[in-house]
């Protein structure tokens, strides 16, 4: 932490600052993912997680290997993939809403074996 404060006034934005921002974003996503019940909230959390990964890609690319484009393109492809994922996920959410009339994560445990007493 100390170096971040030290570099606060100098002319260069330190890399750790970017990384730390992305951490906050990432763990906010984790928190949302773990605690929220609404499927849409879970989706928003996933978007946060993905976005923080994008930042990391871009930052590492820019700071460590500025002559290459790997991180840049990875971030770009990730954006495309997250667009896909969101589209499909929202389609599913709407479908679920149609069938169950709510969008709670906890109501989605139909695949689990019911607690029937079929033990022999």
């Amino acid at each position: 932490m100390g170096s971040i404060l030290e570099n606060f006034t100098s002319g260069i934005i330190p890399m750790e600052a970017y990384i730390f921002v992305s951490f906050i974003m990432f763990f906010s996503g984790i928190y949302g993912f773990l605690s929220r019940k609404s499927l849409l909230m879970v989706l928003i959390s996933i978007e946060l997680i993905l976005n923080s990964a994008d930042i990391n890609f871009a930052v590492f690319n820019r700071y460590l290997y500025p002559e290459h484009f790997e991180g840049f393109f990875f971030a770009m492809f990730t954006i495309a993939i997250s667009a896909c994922e969101t589209a499909v996920a929202i389609a599913i959410v709407i479908n679920i809403y149609r069938n169950l009339n709510n969008v709670e994560v906890d109501s989605l445990d139909e695949l689990k074996e019911p607690e029937a007493s079929d033990e022999k």
Binding site: L40, N51, D54, M76, I79, S82, A83, A87, I90, V93
Partner: peptide, 22 residues
């Protein structure tokens, strides 16, 4: 540009629609 157009543009519209629908 990509981030603004795809994420902030496209995906957010999807979210808002989904929220309004459900």
């Amino acid at each position: 540009a990509v981030q603004t157009a795809v994420y902030a543009g496209g995906i957010m519209v999807l979210f808002i629609f989904a929220i309004l629908l459900t």
